[in-house]
Every structure is written in C-alpha cells, then in structure tokens.
C-alpha cells in the first residue's frame, strides 16, 4: 500500500514516538483533526500493509548490557540464500538481515546479519551459530566491527510528495 496525505501526516506525528498518556491515540487524533476511530483504523491498515513494522518499545541495547555488535557478512549460495537468510533473521540476536549484491572481486558476500551480544567473545560465538546454520552453502565469511561512529542521523520522513 502507498500512504496517502493523511497517512503521511500520521507518520510525521508519530515517528518520534507515542505520548505517554492514558489515551495516546486520542491525543494524536486531536492534534491532526481526526477522530480517534479514523486514526486507529488507518494505523491498523498501515500495520497490515507493512508500512508499520510494529508498535513497540525499543530498549537501549547499551543500557541492557548489549555493548558489542558486529556486521557479519556471508557468501551464500544464491539458490539457498532466501531460505537460509530467513533462518538467520529469525535468530533473536540478529537485528538486521539482508541479501545484498556481491561486488566481485572485492566483496564476495551477499548476506549481511547484524549480531548483538554482551561482549566481543559472545558475538564471535553467535557468529559460529550462524556459520553452523549456513553449513556448506557458505563459501566464506567475515565480520566487521564498528570502531567509531562518524555520523548518526536518524532516517526521517522525507518532506516532499503528498
């Protein structure tokens, strides 16, 4: 589905979060000049259509002791990457999992999985769990640790288009 003007207004009003009040949807609806019922109907439609992934709490990994993360990358047989990628995505310690194009000869990897753990050692052990799942379908792998944040800006709603 494609969000219409009203949906985009709802996205803009909620992308930084819901207010912590007993009736958060009513509060947002009032701000937007909608009824609470219409707002909730549109939110449900966006959730069903995949525009809203989920409505939830995102805890700070660091505050909960998840201080280590690594971008693991894998060279996986193209015929099996869809099935195996989904198995990797289902792991609780993987926060992002994508198939991306290889860039031969510099970059043979086509599956990217971000691994989170409480230490570098734990991340390495979790990486082994993925290696075991991929088995002989994987011809090579690596892991890239971030050593510095150079820029951090959230992805925001782009302004134009209605």
């Amino acid at each position: 589905m494609t969000p219409d003007t009203t949906d985009r207004a709802i996205i803009a009003a909620t992308q930084s979060g819901l207010p912590l009040v007993p009736h958060p949807y009513a509060a947002i609806a009032t701000d937007l000049g909608l009824s609470e019922d219409e707002l909730c109907t549109r939110l449900r439609a966006m959730q069903a259509g995949g525009i809203i992934r989920r409505i939830a709490v995102a805890p700070n990994h660091y505050a909960l002791g998840m201080t280590a993360n690594g971008m693991s990358v894998w060279d996986v047989d193209g015929a099996q990457v869809a099935t195996l990628g989904q198995r990797v995505g289902n792991l609780e310690f993987v926060s992002h999992c994508y198939e991306r194009p290889r860039a031969l000869p510099d970059w043979p990897y086509n599956l990217f999985a971000m691994i989170h753990g409480s230490s570098r050692d734990e991340v390495e052990a979790l990486r082994q769990t993925i290696a075991d799942i991929l088995g002989s379908a994987c011809q090579g792998h690596d892991i890239l640790y971030s050593t510095r944040i150079l820029k951090k800006t959230g992805l925001r709603l782009r302004s134009k288009k209605g």
């Binding site: 819901l18 989920r54 995102a58 700070n60």
Partner: peptide, 23 residues
Amino acid sequence: LEVMKAARVITRFGPFYDAAAMG
C-alpha cells in the same frame, strides 16, 4: 515508562515504520 524513557533505557516507544514506505 516515563522514568525509563527519561533515563534513556527506552530509546523509542511507538510505531516503527518501514523506511522505504516513508518515502
């Protein structure tokens, strides 16, 4: 929830949008 948000234990609370769907 207010306390955990203020203490930054909660980074975000609300809808998570598909980035591409946001335009």
